[in-house]
Simulated scan of single mutants.
Amino acid sequence: MLGVNQYGKAETHLVRVVRDGDVHELRDLLVSVALSGNLDDVHLRGDNSAVLATDTQKNTVYAFAKEHGVGTPEEFALLLARHFLDGAITRARVQVVEVGWARLGDHAFVQSSREQRVATVIASGADAWFVSGVSELVLLKTTDSEFHGFPRDRYTTLTETTDRVLATAVSARWRHDGSASFEDARGALLDTFAAHHSLSLQQTLYAMGSALLSACGSVHEVRLSMPNKHHFVVDLSPFGLENPNEVFHADDRPYGLIEGAVVRDGAPDPGPVWDPYPLV
């Protein structure tokens, strides 16, 4: 006998940007759908006539975000669940998990739930070296980011853009004499990301590292690792909907990984103590 069963689309990652004037609103959701009902025929005979494709469920999540907005997670889940109760489907379970973002400016945000503060002290005899930093400092801005002018060959499909979502998870380490303020260093990274008009993530990395050196005179060098957390505009045209940079598919892999160091002129050479460290 066929026992209890269900099916659905799990963890559709939806990012919804509301562009109402200069101040943008950002919502970041993971939506999981599980449907059950009169589905014996698909299991026992391969008859798919009662099966709403999981790809259709994913598309519905994106389209509803545009057509109806998100509201509270409870409201959005109820809206979707009621929509999926149709014909053979007698039970719809929709789970919405929201990740919170704190505002840095009109259109820049920081996600702090995964952030870690890192401190390393290397002591040798009477000497000590200090390395401070952060990991998983997740940042996102909904505009003021471009990427164009890159070389193209027969394998290039990426389109050029003058307005994109720029998101990254910053890992940074800065070498100092023991007196650098963590708050000043972190603040310089955040403020620069928010204010900087980016032509590439590499340019933003250098600007953030330079700002940290300017804010903290005792820092000799900062090394940064910044993955490009891609956000792709969802094509809603099959559903008769326009999407002017409002509904995105957040793709976690593969990703571009941008890494680099910014060094103060005349900084003392730490020798082999610093060299064994990876870039971050």
Results as ranks from 00 to 15, higher is better:
R16K: 13
K58V: 00
F232I: 13
D28I: 09
V97T: 01
V134D: 00
T142Y: 01
G240S: 12
K141Y: 04
G256I: 01
Q116S: 08
Y62H: 07
T90Q: 08
A50R: 14
G125F: 15
A250I: 04
F239M: 12
E115G: 05
E67K: 13
G87S: 09
W101Q: 00
M208D: 04
H148R: 11
L212D: 00
G3L: 07
A180H: 02
F84H: 11
T12W: 05
C216I: 07
T143I: 15
S181D: 15
D47I: 09
R253H: 09
A250K: 09
S132W: 07
L199A: 12
Y62C: 13
Q6W: 10
L26Q: 10
L139Q: 01
S132E: 08
E242I: 02
S145N: 15
V222P: 00
M226C: 04
L241T: 02
Y277S: 05
T120M: 14
W129R: 07
E67H: 05
D22M: 10
V280S: 05
I122G: 02
Q57Y: 10
S112T: 14
S200C: 06
V263E: 11
D106A: 10
T168V: 10
L39I: 06
P73Q: 02
Q95V: 11
S49M: 05
R16L: 05
Y277H: 14
V94G: 02
S36F: 10
P278F: 11
T60F: 09
S200L: 11
V94I: 09
V61K: 09
P278K: 12
V134A: 03
L29M: 03
A81C: 13
A195L: 06
A195C: 09
V121H: 04
L189Y: 10
E75A: 08
L2W: 11
K229I: 14
D28N: 11
T60I: 03
S214M: 15
E74S: 12
D127Y: 08
E25D: 05
D191W: 08
I258H: 01
F64S: 14
A169M: 01
Y7E: 03
R91W: 06
A267K: 05
L78G: 14
V138Y: 06
V222S: 03
V31K: 04
H43N: 08
V70S: 07
R91H: 06
E259S: 07
A195V: 01
D106T: 03
A172V: 06
F182S: 06
G209P: 00
A53S: 12
R45G: 09
I122M: 12
L213V: 14
E160N: 03
Y155D: 13
P270E: 07
L236N: 03
V280D: 15
A108Y: 12
A194M: 13
F232L: 09
V262F: 05
